[in-house]
């Protein structure tokens, strides 16, 4: 089953075309890497697919949903239950603990606080993170691992990861990737500058000046 369809996507900021007719598909369980120079539009593409930014033209289909034709409440629901997003810099809430950060989407999705925290503990334990640790004392690597756990907490259909290993050392990067690319139903779209990380994906898309081409 196709998890993601992107058709003829356009996005313009001020007088610059950031995305120019971008289109591709990702199937269930598939891992796709997205590479390209800085400023070529990778993060913008990810944010449009992640329903955070609105395209100027084009279509995004998530499973059976066309979110950009739906009300904002539907998009919020899809971000919560269908998508998992790993941001470039983790972006945890500083005044919450690691487990509270991970539990938040599950709690918002309707699980009880206790169940959500238990789910968070289950995800953090294999990553070697103590749940009670305040987020603001976590290292960069630990922050990214917590961010990955948060993205996985609601068992999303599509995981979007924007440079998840960008500022990590080798060991941290490997553990983050291991968590992100664990076998499962979820499709993964992974933005990276690292060819070794891209090599772990099934295929790689290359982006330049807002346009996309695929290399096997």
């Amino acid at each position: 089953m196709t998890r993601l369809v992107v058709e003829d996507l356009h996005r313009r900021f001020s007088d610059r075309d950031v995305l120019h007719g971008v289109g591709f598909e990702i199937a269930a369980g598939e891992t796709v890497a997205l590479m390209g120079p800085s400023g070529c539009g990778k993060t913008t593409l990810l944010q449009i697919i992640g329903l955070i930014d609105r395209p100027d033209a084009g279509r995004v289909v998530l499973g059976d949903h066309e979110p950009w034709s739906a009300p904002s409440a539907i998009r919020a629901e899809l971000r919560l239950t269908w998508l998992g997003f790993v941001f470039q810099r983790g972006n945890l809430i500083d005044h919450l603990s690691a487990r509270e950060n991970v539990a938040l989407p599950a709690w918002r999705a309707g699980q009880s606080r206790k169940a959500a925290l238990a789910r968070a503990d289950d995800l953090l334990a294999p990553l070697g993170i103590r749940g009670e640790t305040p987020s603001h004392v976590l290292s960069i690597g630990e922050t990214q691992r917590v961010a990955v756990a948060r993205a996985l907490v609601n068992r999303p259909q599509l995981i979007l990861a924007d440079e998840p290993t960008g500022s990590l050392d080798g060991a941290s990067a490997r553990s983050v990737l291991a968590a992100l690319l664990a076998p499962g139903e979820a499709a993964v779209l992974l933005v990276t500058h690292d060819p070794d990380v891209a090599a772990r994906a099934g295929r790689t898309l290359h982006m330049r000046d807002g346009k996309l081409r695929e290399r096997a």
Partner: peptide, 16 residues
């Protein structure tokens, strides 16, 4: 703002 943006990004609605 960063915290609020993140909440919106992970699936909290504007009304939340």
């Amino acid at each position: 703002r960063r915290e609020l943006a993140m909440l919106l990004a992970i699936g909290f609605a504007e009304r939340d």
